[in-house]
Amino acid sequence: MGGAVAREAEADSHEVVARFHSDRPFLEASRSAVGEADMAVDFSLPELAVPHLRRCCEWQVPVVMGTTGWYDALDDVRTLVQEHDASVLYAPNFSIGVAVLSRALGHVTTLMDALDDYDAFVQELHHTKKADSPSGTAQMLAEQVVDGLSRKDHVEPETQHQRIDPSAVHVSSTRAGTAFGEHTVAFDSPFDRVALRHRAKNRRGFAAGVLRAAEWLRGRRGLFTLDDVLDDWLNA
């Protein structure tokens, strides 16, 4: 993803002033290494996300965080942003299509909450090099279902070897081939099935979403998500 963002940025007349990776760790770099960068974009590893965020906040470099798996430390990051009057925008998925899917799901769960015959579940498919399972996007969508349906109270991301708790939203994950990412939220009844699905065709869609988020974040202070970007677009 880092490479995809860099290519998309350069194609859109942005300048990439520094690149960091396993052979050139960001945490070993000096402040001068990022020069006069307007924005940092992070697609690294869950265990590096918070240290990277801390460094960017201390250096006053706004950051778009695409790494997932660190959200249990969200309160600490919120405090960090406040202490440094910093700029951070994070999302489990920067595809604009996924953001639209998430908004649509909010409306669908309002309707489905009154229809007890429909049981909800989430399925996701990613390539074999995907680091986390389930994906942050699948977890986000499942949590939305829990928030929207009074009959559901928790997400169950593990394989079930017995009858599943009816109050759980089951998330199933598949890792195969080179799939860029596919997420389905479905509501199954004895009579039919209603499904919302997003299928990424390539990484360019994610990279384009990152750049739009970065352009939006410039000049703003605080901790934001892609929802804040969408709200601003819709209000405009």
Rank of each mutant, 00 (worst) to 15 (best):
F206C: 02
V145K: 05
T67P: 02
H107Q: 11
N93I: 07
V98E: 07
G177E: 11
S30D: 12
R197M: 14
C56P: 04
M1F: 07
V229M: 04
V210Q: 04
H198V: 12
V64Y: 00
H154K: 15
L230M: 06
F224N: 03
D119A: 12
M112E: 00
G136C: 06
G181F: 02
D38N: 12
D147H: 03
G69H: 10
T159D: 13
P157K: 06
V171A: 07
G106L: 04
S102A: 13
G205I: 06
A213K: 01
F43Q: 04
R103K: 06
P25M: 06
V185K: 01
L111K: 06
N93Y: 07
S22N: 05
L226C: 04
A29Q: 04
A213H: 09
M39A: 03
D192C: 00
L211G: 00
D116A: 15
D85C: 06
E158N: 12
Y118R: 01
A11M: 00
E15F: 11
T184E: 14
D192F: 08
L125Q: 04
N93C: 03
H127D: 14
A142P: 10
H107Y: 14
R7M: 03
G106H: 09
V155K: 04
F206W: 13
D76S: 15
G2P: 01
T109H: 07
F224R: 02
L105P: 04
H84W: 13
E28R: 12
F191W: 13
P157V: 04
A138D: 07
F121I: 08
G35H: 05
Q162V: 00
H14Y: 15
F180A: 11
Q144A: 02
H14M: 11
W59K: 02
S173G: 11
Q160E: 08
A176K: 11
D132Q: 12
D231E: 14
T137H: 11
F94D: 05
L48C: 05
V61H: 00
A195Q: 08
S30C: 08
G222C: 08
H52I: 15
G136I: 04
M140Q: 10
D75A: 13
S173L: 01
N202K: 01
L45E: 11
R175Y: 14
K130Y: 15
